[in-house]
Design a protein around this nucleic acid. Sequence first.
RNA 1: GGCCUCAUGGUCAAGCGGUUAAGACGUCGCCCUCUCACGGCGAAAACAGGAGUUCGAUUCUCCUUGGGGCUACCA
Length: 550
Amino acid sequence: MDYEYLANLLFPEVTDTPEDLEKRFPPREGLPEGAVVTRMAPSPTGFVHLGNLVQGLTSERLAHQSGGVLFLRVEDTDSKREVKGAVEVLIETLKHYGIHFDEGAVMGGDSGAYGPYRQSRRAPIYHVYAKKLVREGLAYPCFCTEEELKEIHEEQEKENANFGYFGKWAKWRDRPVEDIEQMIAAGHKWVLRFRSTGSIENKIKFTDLIKGEIEITENDIDHVLLKSDGIPTYHFAHAVDDHLMRTTHVVRGDEWLSTLPFHLQLFRALGFRPPKYCHIGPLMKMDGNSKRKLSKRKDPELALTYYRAEGFPIEAVYEYILTVLNSNFEDWRRANPDAPTDDFRFSYKKMNPAGSLFDGAKLRDVSKNVIGKMSAERVYELAAGWAAEFDPEFHAALTRDRDRTVAVFAIGRGGKKPRKDFAVFSELKDYMGFFYDEFFAIKETFDPKFAPADVAAIVSEYAEMYDPADDQTAWFDKIKNLGAAHGFAADMKEYRADPDAYKGSVADVSNFIRLALTGKNSSPDMYAVMNILGKQTCVARLLAFAESLK
RNA sequence: GGCCUCAUGGUCAAGCGGUUAAGACGUCGCCCUCUCACGGCGAAAACAGGAGUUCGAUUCUCCUUGGGGCUACCA
């Protein structure tokens, strides 16, 4: 077989050589010793999910912690799954989550010397290597139609054989050039296949940075390298791109583990040195009531837009992912409560080889802590930003009087033990909506054991005596005395010692007032709440509540 | 079907041949307290099963079981 002839037949337009490309994309210089060059390489399917972020964050830390490079490469090789505008969504979402890329695809174009960074625009580059493989007898064209391949598969099922295009089923593997020429002349479409020399009899040993040493069977399948439209499959693009872009580490999901032997084969055939691999276990999710794990690509709860709409601060999602990825992160955070996240020394050695179940409750806890540590101004900015996008009405209320809203957020904030009232901004309206007249309503009720007449009397009398000038002690004394006058214990200890001697306690009295002012049985510190609400509003609400009980 | 991979409480996880098997979230109880939240104290809760190696296995090996993945001109 004259491979040189075949190569020119298949790729007449390719004149560049691999050497030309080596020169065009030289090894990266000026990087510190041990610098990690890696990438985030998502496919633009329309939404970004948590798994992407896990992978991206791992890559980002590995790169920037080592003084290396992180770039964004868009793997848009599948025209069938192409979703318009998805690339923009992708770039925007990653930007929102604060992953900083040193180079790669950006809105409308590229930035960096190793591009193009969209695989759909790299066809000429792939073809140079495709031609090289053909010339060396390492690849060949295959004219099988979809139907033929399906037949092969069915036949294999019948024979109980392994699936795939290999051995006797690889009908185009050893066809004479004349047949190929004829098919091309007749205008038939073809794909380029790898001529595998591997055997499932052989095992290869391989060291993954996360999983450790693993043993895998060699690949004997003649996988497709170039699809009939001339665009490469993931495998071929991975080998060519990561070599040319001088990637040192590849971080990806462990669903790639089984095709790894093929990738290694490909790197060798191409004369490339393979990168180091970190295969991350999948992120999983509870399936309703049954305690089975599953990975769901299409699960809306795993889409990043969900967390954005819920109103999780990005820092919280970040910290949560870090706690899942590196088991020592939580300990570090406890020891360094105020240090920037980037100070944490991330290590792939601490990553769990197995997949982990996504824990929403834990995310919430992390989020509460993160928000609890923020300044009131910061919470204001984020809350307003969230509301602007997802709740315009609430946004209008929040921003009507900036200083007042900041004061609301400042209640119980700061100090060693900040309040942790909410985990997401979407709960905010329920938590503090009563500060704004348009969202205020009596939503709960007091214990039916109390007589409405008593409650009404207490509330209306309190409206008379409330004085914003009182300090907190004087304020509370008034409430105690008022309660006592109505048969409610002023001292909690005395009340507990003999509950039957009283109608209730000062806690109950406070709660009547709270209910009148906030509409709920729970709220932040009442003294602070009343100060912000102002005397006029307080009195009006107290009287209205008393009136409603008649 | 074939191949790969993973396996400690409900969840996330320490653990690297000898431990009372950490910690966090969640759950429950108590304390603090004007409610809630916070905080403090405490409780229940785990090495999937079976062989082997070893003086000794959660830790090493094998098998079984179970989960996940791949087996496309998808990534």
